[in-house]
Every structure is written in structure tokens, then in C-alpha cells.
Design a protein around this nucleic acid. Structure first.
Lengths: 201, 201
DNA sequence: ATGACCATGTAATCCGTTACATGATTCG
DNA sequence: CGAATCATGTAACGGATTACATGGTCAT
């Protein structure tokens, strides 16, 4: 289970389940997320395994918090997870599966709307990532040489996230132009039916 | 549930559960996949809803096949799914979560090995995607103008998949250079301790 | 006092993987 | 004969989402 290891990673500095959820919402959310319904039971399971330990602390607002921290066993487990090499999940891209079959609609306008919405949705994520990245880069205008190891790796992760999403957005813009040209050709075929021959197979 | 809709999309041409699994293995596998254990029960559920209907056909090799095809109800459901706009799942990238926390190891060699393996794994997928794409493009050297709607959209999907993965591979290569420079600086700090002052925060 | 936020938790449900069971055909 | 491929299915398990329950504080 990867969630256990992701939480273990975040518990390098002690935090409660509530804190961890908040961290998912702000920043890590682009790469991973989880709901309370999964977080709380998982933390208990990790505690049973001896990877983390929790102590109850009074909270100024609301009920007492349970703040978890990694044990030495947990730290060893976490480092083993890192050194085990990249964990590549079977990612599922429903929107690409949709696009593959969009041709069945024979409606280029619909395809364009689809690409437009895709572009807009991804731009939101891109903007958030770009903000996070520039937050790091204004503090370190000479690049990574002034960053410590922790920040350097966080910066790398932000970079690769931004690159991949920007590549998809660029592709969206390019496809819009391709669609315009294709629609041009299609309408010319209708208005001038005595041209060569239409490309239907 | 997206799997139902993905199967529905694929059943534009009739197929058995076994056929659908084979389609996942070859091509669609980069964007979506499913196991028999999920495919067969899902097909039955879709049949109960009236989205598809199956008829048993004798098979030359092995037991009789159940070939499913979309009903008109299923086709309407499928088109509604397409027109509902891009379905963006909460993608989970465990390897980015790993990378974020890799700084804790304070071991640049380990980071480099991680990036190397990431690059190699992704290159496999890239090569397969590139092959599929060139298969389309050697039949259509003038670009999309000679493709019908179906092929055009399949070509778009292959393109965006390739672009995104290539962006990540390019980033890997760039990071390797960054790491070399960083290691250079780190070793110089050790051999010439009387330089400016080291960048630890 | 109403709603927003703090904080933890359980239960129902669903999605997905793995393992297993069955049995026919074909090729070496 | 044994292995590979064809073909369908069930059961057990694990992972993830959603909904619900509880109850405190704080600001409007």
C-alpha cells in the first residue's frame, strides 16, 4: 500500500490526521491525495505496526489532537521504500480513453469544446504549480546551488509536475489549430462538392 | 464508474470479454487497463442495465464466446459520457511523492539512481507509444487531412500520451546534469573547506 | 443561534487485484 | 503428454470514496 508510505514520508515532522489532510489539500494534492475516511484508519494501522507513535495533545480550538511521529522502525521502512526505486502505479486516464473514441460522434465542434475544457481544467493546476515553483525560485534566484537537499528535491518534484502538465496544455493549443484547419477542409468539401474526392474510407 | 463507459466505448464493434482484455494489453493499456476479474462481472452488470447485449457464439478453439454489442440505450449512454466533458480522475503519482521526500536521504547518488530508473521505465512506454504513432503516420504522411474521424481522434490520443511522457523523459535527462553539477560543488566543498561559506540553511 | 472551522472516527459501498477453478483445442 | 492459448467465471481481499455521527470553539 502506497498511502502508508506517503503518510510515513510526511510524518518526518510530526502531524495529526487533520494536519495531513490539510497538507494534501495544499500542494501535495497534485500528486497524491486521500480522504479522512482513509487517513484515520491507516494511521492506526501504522501505529499497530510500530511505524509511528501518537500522543494526544489538547487543542485550543476543538477536541484533542493526536499528533503522530515516525519511530526509528518507521524511518527504516520509509528509507527502504525510497531506495526501492520509483513506484509506478497503473495510471488511469479516463479523458484519453474518451478522446480515443470521440471520432464516433463525427462532431468536430464537440471535440473542440472537449479540448477547450481540458485545457482550462489543466491550466488551473498549472497555475497553482507555477505559483509554488516561483515561491521557491524567488528565494533562490541562482538555481539549486543555494538550496539544501530537502528543498532541492521538492523543487525537482514541482518542476516535473509543471513540465508534464505544460506539455499537455501546449498540445491542447496545437490541436485547436489542427481542428480549425480540419473543419475548414470539411466545409470546403460541402460547398465545393466537385473537388478531388472526399477522404472517407 | 468509468470502466463501464470505457468498455461501452470499446463495444462500438462487438467483442467478447476476452477480446476486450486483449485490446487493453495492446495499445489502450497506456491509458487504461482492467483484469478479467473485473471485466466479466462488469459486462454482466452492463447487460442487466440494458446497455449491451450478449449472444453466445461457438468458438473454433476452446469454449463458446459471449460476444457483446452496444444497444441503442448503451449508445446513448456512451455519447452522453463523451459529451459530459473530460473526466479527470484524481491521478496518483507515487514516484513524485517519493521524489519530494528524497532529500531526507542526503544521498545524491541514490537520487541519481532513482532518476535513471525512472527514465528507463518511462522510455519503454515512450517507445511503444512512438511505434503506435508511426504506424499511423506512415499510412498518412500528409498529416490528419487524409484520416477519417475515427483515426484522427485515435491519433490525437497517441500524440498527447507521447508528448507528456517525452516531457518527463527530457526532464530526467536535465536533472541528471543538474545533479552532476551539484555533486561537483558538494565535493569541492569537502576538498576546499576554506572557500566562501557552505549553503546549508 | 447559525454557520464555519477544528478534530476524530465508523459503516456502507464501490472499485480493483489476485488467486483459483474449469475445460476445450492445438502444437511440439 | 505437457504447455500454451482460448474462454468464462467466482471468491477473497484490499484500497478508496461517501456519508454519517459526534462535539467543541469562534465570529457574525
Amino acid at each position: 500500500m502506497s498511502l502508508e508510505h506517503v503518510l510515513l514520508a510526511m510524518l518526518g515532522t510530526p502531524a495529526s490526521g487533520y494536519d495531513l489532510k490539510a497538507q494534501f489539500e495544499s500542494g501535495v494534492r497534485f500528486f497524491w491525495s486521500a480522504e479522512f475516511g482513509q487517513i484515520y484508519p491507516t494511521l492506526k494501522a501504522m501505529q499497530r505496526k510500530g511505524w509511528i507513535e501518537g500522543r494526544s495533545e489538547p487543542s485550543p480550538k476543538g477536541p484533542p489532537r493526536i499528533v503522530y511521529s515516525r519511530t526509528s522502525v518507521g524511518t527504516r521502512e520509509f528509507h527502504a521504500w525510497l531506495r526501492g526505486g520509483p513506484v509506478m502505479g497503473n495510471e488511469r486516464f479516463a479523458w484519453i480513453a474518451q478522446l480515443i473514441h470521440y471520432g464516433e460522434l463525427h462532431d468536430l465542434d464537440a471535440t473542440e469544446r472537449f479540448i477547450d475544457e481540458l485545457s482550462r481544467k489543466q491550466s488551473f493546476v498549472r497555475d497553482a504549480l507555477a505559483d509554488a515553483l516561483s515561491g521557491v525560485e524567488i528565494d533562490h534566484p541562482q538555481g539549486d546551488s543555494t538550496m539544501d537537499d530537502i528543498l532541492f528535491h521538492e523543487w525537482l518534484a514541482l518542476q516535473v509536475g509543471l513540465r508534464a502538465i505544460q506539455a499537455r496544455i501546449d498540445w491542447c493549443e496545437e490541436v485547436k489549430r489542427t481542428i480549425h484547419a480540419r473543419r475548414e477542409r470539411a466545409s470546403r468539401k460541402v460547398t465545393e462538392p466537385n473537388s478531388e474526392r472526399n477522404g472517407k474510407r
